[in-house]
Amino acid sequence: MAFDAIRDGTPSAREAGLGALKRLTAPLIVLLVLGLLLWWLSTLTLDSIEQRTLNWDYIIARTREHLGLTIVASFLVAVLAIPTGILLSRTTSRPIRATVLGIANIGQATPAVGVIILLAIIWRTGYTTALVALVAYSFLPVLRNTMIGLQQVDESVRESAKGMGMTPNQVLLKIELPLAVPVILAGLRTSLVFTVGVATIATFINAGGLGDMIVNGLKLQRYPVLITGAVLVACIALIIDWIAGLAEDKLRPRGT
């Protein structure tokens, strides 16, 4: 613990305590909210329509679909976008890099709901379409962060590594990549949280997930169903963001 505090650069014990408290806020809020939800649901008498969705089997199945979509999409993005970003940052051609960064910026202005619905119209509805849309949508931000992370490595650090006799590959693996890790991870974290949100929209194209509960609750005017779906999605997003934050702290290179 003492080493952690030094590495994080937190000088006073009070701030370190505040940091630990901050790390616990998200899970505490989630537990509190889930507890309130359970208590509220237990005070209600559910009609037959509500009983059909507000039972553990249904909720666990939807949650599993939701997490599956999120995790598979994020994994695919990580294994596709990070290597592509590394390759692209190796090219010395400025036009290629500028084009990729430009496309990434326009991609960010594109609404996710538009991408997913357009893909459903020109291709088909269902899980695969949602997966493709999620990967396509998160690909650009992660790619962009990988390129920016590698670019922002101090030129003098690169020079010193070269001066120590490292080959370009060694410079990449031992110097540039470790120094780019925080930026790359920040990109992955954003895309993970974002994917949880977009996976909710996947219900519009029949790809399942907890969005089903929100949409059914809205259509059938059953607010308990709607609220349960929404609260669960929000809790998943918060927990995933929290886990990604912990991973970010752990995987950060020591010197920085």
Binding site: L18, A26, V198, L226, I227, V233, A234, A237, L238
Partner: peptide, 27 residues
Amino acid sequence: IPRSVVIASAGVALTIPSLAMLAVLIP
């Protein structure tokens, strides 16, 4: 302390998926 509380709660709001946020505002 108020500063970190405010920024943390705004961060929580931003993390919540938009469809979920809209849904809880409907009732």
